[in-house]
């Protein structure tokens, strides 16, 4: 390789290396803040302020979903299979929201009665795609 091209190669490596380093530093500094939500375990270990809105995510625990009659209010438990947190919410739910499915709730965590007051519920679905007929046939067995 000619000397001038070798020098340009060093320039390429330097530009790429320095932007990589800068990005790694930024991402390391942000660390926890890049996560979209706390799992219930993270929530208990990080003691969030009750006045700051945060997100909690996990699975809706089986059998925990309770609807208050004649209102839009619901209660359910978000679990990461280690810890769990009770969530209160009043409003419209996304179609994919159901028990044993993924959920991300935005709201305020009150440590005194250890409940989570949500003002937004988002459904988190997984990466599995199966034909409806196949699943129904399997469940029918």
């Amino acid at each position: 390789m000619k000397k001038i091209r070798k020098n340009r190669l060093y320039a390429v490596l330097f530009i790429f290396g320095s932007s990589l380093l800068a990005t790694v530093l930024v991402l390391t500094a942000l660390n926890q803040n890049i996560n979209l939500f706390y799992s219930p375990s993270d929530l208990f270990s990080s003691n969030p302020s009750p006045n700051k809105s945060i997100r909690v995510g996990g699975l809706v625990q089986k059998g925990s979903l309770m609807r208050i009659p004649d209102s839009l209010e619901i209660n359910f438990i978000i679990t990461d299979l280690k810890e769990e947190v009770t969530v209160n919410y009043s409003g419209i739910l996304p179609d994919l929201f159901k028990e044993e499915a993924g959920v991300v709730a935005t709201g305020y965590y009150d440590q005194t009665n250890s409940s989570f007051q949500a003002f937004e519920i988002l459904a988190k679905h997984d990466e599995n795609y199966e034909p409806k007929e196949v699943v129904q046939a399997l469940e029918g067995k």
Partner: peptide, 8 residues
């Protein structure tokens, strides 16, 4: 293609 069991 078939309909998805979860998302429809």
């Amino acid at each position: 293609s078939p309909t998805d069991f979860k998302q429809g």
